[in-house]
Design a protein around this nucleic acid. Structure first.
Lengths: 338, 338
DNA sequence: ACAACTACTGTGCACGTTCACAGCGCGGTT
DNA sequence: AACCGCGCTGTGAACGTGCACAGTAGTTGT
């Protein structure tokens, strides 16, 4: 299968021990924690490590410690999302950076198709990683059940509908964030406030709609509510539907910035001015929000805190603690579109 | 350091051997390749694997095979790029998918700061991965030298300036692509064709400018050339400079779609119509190209082929073959902006 | 009949590390 | 004098796998 293998000249812990004039055990102790090692031995070991260029073999360490020292970042969404919606990139980048500081590498895996899901599931069950960061908005994916059954620590991003209390997660306070936005639109004097929601099988789809209803009550009539799928095209389609059903609307709360960008295009094409005729509010405060024309008023998700919490919750579970949840506050960011 | 460890109930190859009534060696042979195994033994092993739920321990396997069975995807750019510029996401997604089919996971690592570079370098030197996919446009990063010295297989994305012939790489034919675009602009009757380049220490910055000069010759005067940094803001700044220096320009070839999006905004704000007053051509054909107004004429980079070649070149090197290069053709995509 | 070959199987070893245990010298207490 | 605890150290035993080697039985060739 492989070609001729080069003679491995990598120094082992034996070489370091010999160079330092101590035993393997002392070298190991000196490098891991350093308890019960005399200053003289410690110095000799460190010097020997420097001269030999020794680096511990991760496979050998994993074999005995039963720890992979790595975690998986699993995306169950269609892969296209990874590069259309900046949210996923931000989450990935945040988690990677957070974990890199702890010297824990991140394995990127996808599970959007049946084949991929099986592969990923088998891979994780093989013990290749110590834990899983699961980014999956849609519910009903059997991967979460499989992971839970295999007993591996998991942290979801966003409330895992149907698994609350069983699976750890970190999420923004979607409902309260939606309330902030709709109240803001009202305070601007808007009375016919429509909404474009996320898919009803996602926490963002459910919670942000609930926040919208909290504020509008009976004013939240069915003609003012259209469903999107978090894609730009979905936002365009939903906005078209809304204009058709309620041409007199004077504001739209859109459940994601990407969909809001699509909605802005449709509003522009219909001849309406934003915000003069129609105010538009987004959700996420992703990089898109500042590049639309006009710049988007939106609800900032604290992504940095979310990724930090995801990592913390995962490491806690790896240490043996039970799964917990973290819900983080959002912030209204007012720009030119409202 | 860790809590109380659960009693490992994971079945080992011993358990499978016992259940199948054969020896460990036979199980190993049956699962790897299956040469010299009797049909009866093979079936017994497969059945035992099913009943026990056995999955090979990757650490133990790596320890003996001296292979990590994983590769690293290393990004040396500022991290912000990962989620602002869709190109990186596409490369990452493509490589991940390509490798997933071979059951090779991808470790995502960054090396934008000094600390990160050292960490990544040390990590790779530890033998945690079999090879490196290096996405680094800027030259002069010492990581490439470090990796080469450590003898690990590396494939760069884009020609590694100053390392040609030493490091394998896959890249689009930037120069020829730029020629295609500038010739297209000329064929539309444009005569004052400006360009916004990439940074001069990147292959795209150098080659695409060279292609522009190939076509324009003496018409490529200095006032028509502005430098960008592949960011949207950089595109805006460069476009502003160009309009200031050459207000009579009637076309711009921009070395990336993201910068072109920025340029479009500036042109719009200056009251110019695209393409009536100024034609705009981009480069990449990233997802941005279809979401600008008007949609962007651009040069398509064959990202799928690039990632496929990167993976192929890497696997080849891991098998012991010398580093090679792959240069792939581009394609002009005409939309509304020219 | 004997040797040689083929197809298959079992066993020992090595991979490089961590961990538990035992041993050591030393000073202080019983 | 015997004992104990303490800080430090070396040693053997895993961890689970793949591979080289030797060995077996059956078939073929001379």
């Amino acid at each position: 299968m492989s070609g001729n293998r080069a003679p491995r000249n990598r120094p082992t812990i034996h070489d370091v021990a010999a160079a330092a004039g101590v035993s393997r055990g002392t070298v190991s102790r000196a490098l891991n924690g350093g308890r019960n090692v005399s200053p003289a031995a410690l110095e000799a070991v460190l010097k020997a490590v420097r001269t030999t260029g020794y680096v511990a073999n991760p496979a050998a360490r994993s074999l005995v410690t039963q720890r992979a020292h790595s975690v998986a970042f699993v995306l169950t969404e269609p892969q296209q999302r990874l590069f259309e919606d900046p949210n996923f990139s931000i989450l990935l980048q945040g988690c990677t950076q957070e974990l890199a500081e702890l010297d824990v590498p991140v394995l990127l895996m996808t599970a959007s198709t049946e084949v991929e899901r099986k592969r990923t599931s088998r891979f994780i069950a093989a013990g290749h990683v110590d834990g899983v960061l699961l980014v999956s908005s849609h519910t009903g994916n059997p991967l979460l059940d499989e992971l839970r059954d295999s007993g591996i620590p998991v942290v979801a991003c966003g409330k895992p509908i149907g698994h609350e209390g069983q699976v750890a997660y970190a999420a923004a306070d979607d409902r309260s964030g939606a309330r902030q936005m709709v109240e803001h639109l009202r305070s601007r004097g808007r009375r016919r406030i429509a909404t474009i929601t996320g898919p009803p099988d996602t926490p963002g789809g459910v919670e942000r709609l609930a926040g919208y209803r909290d504020v509008l009550g009976a004013d939240a009539t069915a003609d003012l509510i259209a469903h999107g799928d978090y894609s730009r095209a979905g936002g365009e389609a939903a906005m078209t539907t809304l204009l058709d059903r309620a041409p007199d609307l004077d504001a739209v709360f859109v459940a994601s910035d990407l969909m809001a960008a699509g909605a802005l295009n449709v509003l522009h094409d219909s001849g309406r001015r934003v915000p003069d005729d129609v105010a538009v509010g987004g959700f996420d405060d992703s990089s898109i929000a500042t590049s639309t024309r006009p710049a988007l008023t939106t609800v900032r998700q604290p992504f940095q805190r979310i990724t930090r919490e995801m990592v913390r919750l995962l490491l806690e579970q790896i240490q043996g603690e039970p799964p917990a949840a973290s819900i983080l506050p959002t912030e209204l960011v007012v720009r030119a579109s409202t």
